[in-house]
Design a protein around this nucleic acid. Structure first.
Length: 127
DNA sequence: GTTGTGACATCGC
DNA sequence: CGCGATGCCACAA
């Protein structure tokens, strides 16, 4: 799996899933973007968080429930990460009207920018 | 006890 | 724009 784990992996992945569920149909976000929307857990230095959090997000996605639109999470290059199921992910994105050019999504056009950070974090408090 | 290997991002050439 | 190196960790085999 990843590089170091967050202090409380279960809580963290719940936060990730909650954010991913907010992604609108036809839009995408990057792993790093999701990581930035979640504050560093207590005891984690900001620079360490910046270095590892994208990996943690990837971990959370590896175990995400069926109701999470995992296909809308891609890497910073606008590409679909190489993993089993990548083919299916691409198909789902195209079904949402997202066009891939040379296996890449045009983030300038499809990346979702409308997250209200404070509001989302408040929701994750449910866990 | 070692080794290989990750749903990443960033920088350099 | 593409490819390789870095960062430097947990976990399975």
């Amino acid at each position: 799996m990843p590089y170091q784990s967050p202090p409380n992996p279960q809580i963290y992945q719940e936060q990730v899933w909650t954010l991913v569920r907010q992604i609108p149909y036809g839009k995408v976000v990057t792993y790093g973007q999701i990581a930035q929307l979640i504050p560093p857990p207590n005891g984690i230095a900001p620079q360490d968080y910046k270095a590892f959090s994208p990996r943690w997000v990837g971990d959370a996605m590896a175990a995400c429930p069926n109701d999470v639109p995992w296909q809308r999470v891609i890497n910073a290059q606008g590409k679909i990460s190489d993993r089993p199921g990548a083919q299916r992910q691409r198909q789902r994105l195209e079904e949402e009207g997202i066009v891939l050019i040379n296996d890449k999504v045009d983030l300038k056009f499809y990346q979702w920018q409308g997250i209200d950070r404070e509001a989302e974090l408040r929701q994750t408090t449910l866990f």
